[in-house]
Design a protein around this nucleic acid. Structure first.
Lengths: 187, 187
DNA sequence: ACCTGAACACCGTTCAAGT
DNA sequence: ACCTGAACACCGTTCAAGT
């Protein structure tokens, strides 16, 4: 006697992200998520065999949302500098609205919680394409430098690491300009 | 009838860091740490009122170790570029030996787990001094750019985010050179 | 002053039994 | 095919009682 699935994937992921942002990653438990979607805890194991799978679902959903939100960034008319500026600002804006999950994107607590290579591909692809168009030769070191800076900045900002005063927006634009200059993506 | 303290602060912190690096931050529990130092769980509450206090103890110990290891970096004879190069390489080497705690340094899971301003001061002070000597005017944006890049790079490297092949050492040196150039710390 | 056993509400995970 | 109650070993935290 087949029983219908009672919780959509959309509702499940939304519940995970809601709890993560409202109460922190540690509050994303099998119990809290089950309660949030209205089933008993053991039912959740049909959808996520381990707790860290819940975190991966949230992280992959975040990547998808990020990619959707900047579909037009890679448009043919744009310069590499424009694309990379858009990417960096989009990631920072996303980190501001979803700080907990965005911290998971490049530094998950386990392999199991990390977004799959396939789900991260569109994001990395857009980045590599833009960097390739700017630097001669191997784009990988420049792409890694750029990504490390954006990710580090957004993570630190959301963790409250910039406590010495000063204008954080200004520091971001300073850094963006500096990074674009050194990797040669400057008009 | 006073009872003597049975666990030294050194042993306690060493136990926390041992568990963190061997089994991950999530494995640092009141129970596991208590067992590791040879007391019962409730005794630990005399030393750390909450689990995140254990993480802060580890993070502050890591900062202290980092600062000790580069006491000579700020020596009068050095150029800003030499000091910043030493800082960046020291942080990367430290992240390689203590990846779990170093991930906590600038992005702790809660205020309680974050190293205190006072304990982080020597590290930030050395950085700001070196950057101030290189850039004219406000050193804060440049210092934040540099720190964000180093921290992002080390965190991503240790989390296994650089999976596209290529030489990660080369990417680090490329980035270091790029960052030093843009903030003007170049001979 | 520090340590302990007992207790409480919780958590991840498994599994046999329901529909 | 999915959901559930019951069960297990665990966890953070509190507290009264020991020395």
């Amino acid at each position: 006697m087949p029983a219908p699935r009672r919780v959509s994937q959309e509702d499940l992921v939304a519940a995970i992200r809601r709890i993560a942002e409202a109460e922190g990653i540690d509050a994303v438990t099998m119990s809290s998520v089950a309660a949030e979607v209205g089933v008993r805890t053991p039912s959740l194991y049909k959808r996520a065999a381990h707790r860290h799978d819940l975190l991966r679902l949230a992280a992959e959903d975040a990547v998808r949302e990020l990619v959707d939100g900047m579909a037009e960034l890679g448009a043919p008319g744009r310069t590499p500098a424009e694309t990379l500026t858009g990417l960096a600002r989009a990631l920072r804006a996303f980190a501001a609205t979803a700080p907990r999950v965005s911290a998971l994107l490049f530094a998950a607590p386990s392999e199991r919680a990390a977004p799959s290579r396939a789900s991260a591909e569109p994001l990395l692809g857009a980045l590599l394409t833009a960097v390739s168009a700017a630097v001669p030769g191997d784009p990988l070191p420049a792409a890694r430098t750029f990504t490390a800076w954006v990710y580090g900045f957004c993570t630190m900002e959301q963790a409250g690491a910039f406590r010495l005063g000063g204008d954080v927006d200004e520091a971001f634009e300073y850094g963006l300009d500096a990074l674009l200059s050194t990797i040669g993506a400057r008009p």
